[in-house]
Design a protein around this nucleic acid. Structure first.
Lengths: 340, 340
DNA sequence: AAAAATCGAGTAATCGTTTACACTGGATTA
DNA sequence: TAATCCAGTGTAAACGATTACTCGATTTTT
C-alpha cells in the first residue's frame, strides 16, 4: 500500500505514524497499562493504516511469553484422538493460540523428546495424553513452570488439571447391560495395563461381575490396535467356546473383533453380543449397528483446551480434575433378552 | 547440575566455559562456517556439560529462520486426513521440525485467517489442503517467499509443488470394475465441484461411461460428510429404483450410503454393489468387507513433508508435482458377475 | 621477497519487541 | 502553600542469538 511496504513495518513505524513513543504503542497493543483514550485511538489508527503485525519472535524473546500450546498424543491415527484434537484445535484457534502437534506413538522415549521440543518452542502449556503411568516422569517439565493438562490417560501421582471420562463406571455399565440381557459368559478384551483408561475399564468390568458372583471373569488384553483386537478375540474363543458376549475396551480393537467374527462366520448378535467403546462414524453403518459406550470426544478436547488456558492465565488457582459421563448407546449388536 | 542452573544458560555461558567467543559458539552450532576441529570439540563439550539449549526466539529474531511448518487441513476430523497427518508428523519430527496444525473446516474465511496466523508464527513453509479452487487466493503468501505445498486438493493456476493421487484414473478404474461385473445402472455419489478431488473423480466416472455408451450417467453430489452420503444415496434411489451399483467418492459418504442401505434393508452386494474411496480401518470389519479405492495416505503425508522441506532448503529447484497411484482393493461388496 | 589472498577467530551491532526507570504537570494531602 | 503522590508518557536498556566487519597469522601468487 505504502511506497515502502517492502520493508517490514515495526513498532517504530507505528510510533512515528501515531506521533508517540514505541513504549506507548506496546502498551496499547498489550492493553495492560494506562494510556489515554485519545492516544489509544491514534495508535490503533496507525496500526490499521500501516497494516502492522507484531513480530512474535521479538515479543517472545523480550517478554518470555507465547501463544503456543503443545499437544502430545499417544496415537494420532486413532480416530478417538482425532475427534478430541478437533475440539482442542477449535478452542485454541478461537482463543488466538497456535497448536503445536506431536505424536509419541506409544513410545516413552519419543514422548520425552517431543516434550523437550515443546519446551524449545517455548510453549505456554501442554496437553498430554501420556504414554507412561507415573506423574514423576513429568515433574521436570512442571518445574520449569509450564503447566501440563492430563487428558484421557491420567498417570498416577500426577497433581495437575485433568480431563477424562469415568472409565470404570462406563465399563461397568456396559458389562451390566450384557449381564442384564441374560448373558452368563461375558468376555472382556482390555488394553495394556500401564494405560490408565485400560486399567480402569477392566476394573469396571470386574466390579460388574462382583455383583453377579455366578459369572466368572474372562479377560484377554490386547494392545489397543485393530490387529490386537482381532487376535485377542481369536484367543478367547479358542479357549472358551461358550462365550456369548464380548465387551471390547476400545474402538480399533472392536473393529478387530468384528473382523474376526466376520471371517469366522460368527453372527452378531445371534451368536455373539458385542459392546464396543467410542461412538465412531462407522458405528451406525455396521450391520448390525453397534451398541457402544459413547465418549464426548469433541467436548473433551474443548474442555481440555479451556482448562489449560485457564491455568496459563491463572497459575495459582486450585487444580481441577474434570470427569465426564459417558452414554451407553444401545443399538442392535447385543440383540434382545437371552434365556439360559 | 551446576550451582547456577537456576538462570537460563546462554551462548555466553557456553563461550566462557569453552574459552571462545559467542561467535564461535554460534558457528559451531550452525555448522556453516569454518571452526578448527579442536575448538569445535571444546565448544561441544561445553554445550553438553552445561546442558545448553539454544533459544529459538532469539535465533528466529536475528536470523529470520525457523524450524516450524504450518499444516492446514480442510477437515481434520476426516480419517483420511488423519492418516496423512500422521505421515507428515512423522517426517517433520524426524527432520527436527515442529508442526503447527490448523483446521479450516471447509471455510475460506477461516482458511485465510489460519494462513495469516501461520505467517505470524514465522513458519518456514506450509502444507495446504485448500478450501478454494483458485491458486490466485494464495499468491499473497507466496509473495512473502514462504513456500506452499498443495496436498490432495490442487487448486487451478497454482504453480507450486504438489502431491495428490490420480483421482480421475482411480474413479475410472472403479467404475469400470462395476461395469465389467455386468452392471448397467451405476450411480455416482460425488462431492462439491469446487474441490478438485471431487471434480476429478466425477470426470473419471464419466470417462468410464464414455467407453460404454449404453450406460447412462447417474450423478448425485453430496458434501463429503456421512449425512451427505446418506441423503445423496436416498435421493438417487428415490428417483431411479433400478440402480444396481454405487460408486461413492469419499470415505464418510460411503459410510452414509451403507447406513442408508442398512436402514432400508437393502442387501449388499446381493441387491446393490458398492465401491468406496479410501481403505479405512473399518473396511475389513464391515459385512461384507468393502471393495475400495485405496489411497496411500500415510505415504502421501511423508512425501508432502519431504517435498516441502526440499523446497525450503532449495528454493530455486524446479517445481515438482507428484501423483501417486491408487489401488483398487477388491473385497466382497460388489459380489460376482451379474447377468442382465 | 613483496603483495595478495585466505583462514580462523573475536568485537560489537543488530533483529523488534517489552519494560525498568525517569520525567512532567496536575491533583491531593498535611 | 509546600510536600507528596500519581497518572501518562518517553528514553533507553534489556532479551539471546547471528553476522558484518575487523584483524593478525599463514599461505599463495607474482
Amino acid at each position: 500500500m505504502d511506497k515502502n511496504s517492502l520493508r517490514k513495518i515495526t513498532v517504530h513505524d507505528v510510533a512515528k505514524q501515531a506521533g508517540v513513543s514505541t513504549a506507548t504503542v506496546s502498551r496499547v497493543i498489550n492493553g495492560n497499562d494506562t494510556v489515554s483514550p485519545e492516544l489509544q485511538t491514534h495508535v490503533r489508527d496507525a496500526i490499521n493504516k500501516l497494516g502492522y503485525r507484531p513480530n512474535k519472535a521479538a515479543h517472545h524473546l523480550r517478554s518470555g511469553k507465547t501463544n503456543r500450546v503443545g499437544v502430545l498424543f499417544a496415537d494420532i491415527r486413532n480416530p478417538f484422538f482425532t475427534s478430541v484434537l478437533a475440539g482442542i484445535e477449535n478452542y485454541l484457534h478461537e482463543a488466538g493460540y497456535a497448536l503445536i502437534l506431536g505424536n509419541s506413538n506409544e513410545d516413552a522415549k519419543i514422548e520425552s523428546m517431543q516434550l523437550q521440543a515443546f519446551l524449545d518452542e517455548g510453549v505456554a502449556g501442554i496437553i498430554l495424553s501420556s504414554v507412561t503411568n507415573s506423574g514423576e516422569n513429568y515433574q521436570q517439565i512442571l518445574d520449569t513452570g509450564i503447566p501440563i493438562l492430563a487428558m484421557d490417560r491420567i498417570p498416577k501421582n500426577f497433581r495437575v488439571d485433568s480431563i477424562s471420562i469415568d472409565n470404570a463406571r462406563a465399563a461397568k455399565q456396559a458389562a451390566l447391560h450384557l449381564i442384564n440381557l441374560g448373558h452368563k459368559r461375558v468376555a472382556f478384551i482390555g488394553g495394556p495395563e500401564h494405560i490408565s483408561t485400560a486399567h480402569l475399564r477392566k476394573r469396571g468390568y470386574l466390579e460388574a461381575l462382583q455383583e453377579h458372583p455366578d459369572i466368572k471373569p474372562i479377560i484377554e488384553l490386547g494392545d489397543f490396535t485393530q490387529l490386537g483386537g482381532y487376535e485377542a478375540t481369536r484367543n478367547v474363543l479358542a479357549i472358551h467356546n461358550d462365550i456369548s458376549a464380548f465387551l471390547v475396551a476400545n474402538n480399533l480393537m472392536t473393529l478387530g473383533a468384528l473382523q474376526f467374527f466376520n471371517e469366522s462366520k460368527i453372527r452378531v448378535p445371534d451368536e455373539i453380543a458385542l459392546v464396543g467403546f467410542d461412538d465412531m462414524p462407522w458405528a451406525t453403518s455396521l450391520q448390525p449397528p453397534l451398541t457402544v459406550v459413547a465418549q464426548p470426544t469433541y467436548e473433551m478436547g474443548k474442555i481440555a483446551a479451556r482448562l489449560l488456558l485457564d491455568r496459563i492465565n491463572n497459575p495459582n488457582s486450585p487444580i481441577q480434575q474434570v470427569t465426564l459421563e459417558t452414554e451407553l448407546i444401545i443399538r442392535e449388536s447385543c440383540g434382545g433378552l437371552r434365556f439360559a
